[in-house]
Every structure is written in C-alpha cells, then in structure tokens.
Write a protein that binds this DNA or RNA. Structure first.
Lengths: 124, 124
DNA sequence: CATACTACTATCCCAAAGGATACCAGTATC
DNA sequence: GATACTGGTATCCTTTGGGATAGTAGTATG
C-alpha cells in the first residue's frame, strides 16, 4: 500500500515541482518561520515582535508582516488607544501549515544529527 | 492525544526555529527541488540533466550538484569511458526527504487552490 | 584539419534580499 | 521644553543568488 507506484511522466513531475515551489515561495526568506513561531503563543504588538526577534530591522519586519498578512497567515488588528496599538496574530488558516512545519522540524533535527555525526567520523 | 500541550518557552521555540531553518537552508534556491525530482527516475549525466532542466546554466548546475552531494542527497560516479562520463544519482538518504516533500507538495496544492478561490471572490 | 562530444570552470554582470540609519506624526511623561 | 513611547517609512548600502558567455583538455569523427 505504501509502495511507490509513482508515475514519472514529465507532467506529473512538473506539477510536483510547481506545488513544492509554491510552498517554499511562501515560507522562504530569513524571517517568515521565526515570525510564525514567535506569534504561535498569542498576539503580539509590532515593537514586541521586534524585541523578541533580536536583530530584525523595522523595515524588514514590516515587509515580512505584510507578506504574512497577504497570505492570510496573520491578522493585523488596530486598537484606538493612545498611542494607537497594533497587534498581529496567527489566523486559523496558518494552522494548515502545522504538518509541514512538523515535518520540516523533525527532518531538520535528523539532518543536523547526521551532519554532526559525519563531521566526527571525518575527524577519525 | 493530538491536543496541543506545547510549551512555548523561548528555548523550545528557538530549537524549533533552528531546526526548520536547517531544513529550509538545504532545500531552498531555485533548482534544488527540480534537481531532486529530475533525478528521481534514475541516474543521469551532467549534460542530460542540463537538457532536461531547460534554462539552467552549467555553472549553476555544477554548484547545485556539489551542494546536493555535500548534503549526501546525490552520489557522483565517474566512469572512465572515452570521453569520461559522470552520473549523478539519488542516495538512500535522499529518501528521508520524502515525507517533507509530500507535505510541502500537498500544502502547496492546497494553498494554490485557496489563492485561486480568493481571487475569484474578489472579482465578485 | 575542423568540428563535436565529454564535464565542467572562469569571468563578468544584474537583480533581489536583507540591513543600518534616520526620520515621521501624535501623545504622554519628566 | 526634552525625551520616550506608539507603528511604522524612506534612503542608502552590501551581500547573495542567479545568469550569460567563453573557454578548458582530451578524444573521436567527418
């Protein structure tokens, strides 16, 4: 049942390439995932995010948040306090990324272990 | 059982960010995944790959193949025919990416559908 | 003897990503 | 009146990714 009866026509491969690229296009860049993870324990304000992700400049943070908003991973809420406060929080749609993130995370851990192990064996 | 008893300490989040970044670091760029998919139906020679991935220049192809080799996704084999031929093929380790790729692919398809749907609703 | 094939490398160039710094309006605080 | 807070923008700069083009050594083929 789990056997690989995959057909390797150029068309099928091409669809796969496109789908995977679509996914990576949305997730790539230096800050998208750190941002999503930073927001995963609740809404945060602009300056709060900037403080928790050390070394991100306001220009970059602004740009990344806009992109996350466009992709509907993040909702921006404005409160008319004085001064105005703005919060950013994850949308329900962002939860559809959970399995992708889990796989990326566990594979990333596996790969790091492998790298470390192969470094050691080369020091033999 | 599937409930989210995730602890959101900065340390845990940080480990997650690092692992996910490690994974994306290996997969990103314009050509890594097309290359892996291109090799998924068997070994290919350098010029064969270049012909099947239209528009990749030899410099880029060479660089990408070296990186894939470093990460042990691809094995390079030299045959002393005349002229020398070189083949590239996926390693068993590259199969550890299967689940990641599947998740990325299916999420990419989901996301594309969402984009298309939301475009339509905005044309209302 | 010229051309084509093998697998590349070298050089130069352009565009995009990312970052540093200064600045904006408005209000509150010292 | 100076400073600090809110959430950003504007400008300039550097780094990185990627691409175009030409060239390499050695052999074979016309």
């Amino acid at each position: 049942m789990e056997t690989e009866d995959i057909v390797h026509t150029p068309e099928v491969c091409n669809r796969h390439v496109i789908a995977v690229r679509d996914a990576l296009y949305v997730l790539n860049g230096k800050w998208k995932l750190p941002l999503i993870i930073a927001l995963s324990d609740g809404p945060k304000r602009f300056n709060e995010i900037q403080r928790s992700l050390v070394d991100i400049s306001p220009k970059i943070l602004s740009k990344e948040l806009k992109e996350l908003e466009l992709n509907e991973f993040v909702e921006r809420k404005v409160f008319s306090t004085t001064p105005v406060t703005v919060t950013y929080e994850l949308t329900p749609y962002s939860k559809t990324l959970d399995k992708v993130m889990d796989e990326l995370r566990s594979w990333g851990e596996l790969h790091r272990q492998k790298i470390v192990a192969s470094r050691k064996s080369k020091l033999s």
